[in-house]
Design a protein around this nucleic acid. Sequence first.
DNA 1: CGACTGTTATATCATCAATATAACAGTTAG
DNA 2: CTAACTGTTATATTGATGATATAACAGTCG
Lengths: 122, 122
Amino acid sequence: MLIEIDFNSEEAIYVQLRNQIIVAIATSQLKNGESLPSVRNMADDIGVNMHTVNKAYSSLRQDGFLKVDRRRGAVVSVDIDKINSLNKMRCLLKPLIASGIVKGVSRDEVKKLIDEIYDDME
Amino acid sequence: MLIEIDFNSEEAIYVQLRNQIIVAIATSQLKNGESLPSVRNMADDIGVNMHTVNKAYSSLRQDGFLKVDRRRGAVVSVDIDKINSLNKMRCLLKPLIASGIVKGVSRDEVKKLIDEIYDDME
DNA sequence: CGACTGTTATATCATCAATATAACAGTTAG
DNA sequence: CTAACTGTTATATTGATGATATAACAGTCG
């Protein structure tokens, strides 16, 4: 698993890590049942503190992307929760689309963007 | 202009204010050339500090949603910048859609969501 | 037993969100 | 002209959060 952290980004490190793991699951680079590197190994790999990795893993567990097995560590295990996921998307999408409307982005252009991102991942 | 701040939200007050103003512009509740309440009045209205409002207004000015006229205060004045807007959307959409894919949300369901949000606003 | 796993507890430091008080330079109505 | 308003800036404080560091604990496994 290749993780790239941008230390100059305004986005928190644990959020970057979290998002990249989600993308890796979405693109099947990480498959259901697969183990992630231990918090200490991952921390060494990307050059951050153990607790920063732990925070990302805990957040992913909380949101139903992985479970923790005493023997195998953090294991990808997705809880499908489409309704909850759609609700979260709606909340985040609303201000994003409002901004797009104001800036002259059409409905079809957004949909085209959606297609591009889906095509990149699936 | 009706502004509703959720003081229990994890979202920063100035971000809530910012987003609600953008939505108001998108839905034509606020029109180009219209003045916003002064930072002090808005602060009194919604029960927050003047600087919190100033931060929201400054951020909106920085991102090309309004300009400041010494005489008329903060005035809605949108800089159309579609390309930049699309790029920002792409960055924010990627992790959002990745999460959706993992949680079983289909491409068409996202597009349906986009339609709903656009219909609500336009 | 020893090396590993996640987890938890502290502590420190920097940054940021929010508040408060205060002042300054324009603008505008009385 | 004065007084009341506008945005803007400066400074300070408080609380929350991100990231780091060191340390320990309990479970697992070769």
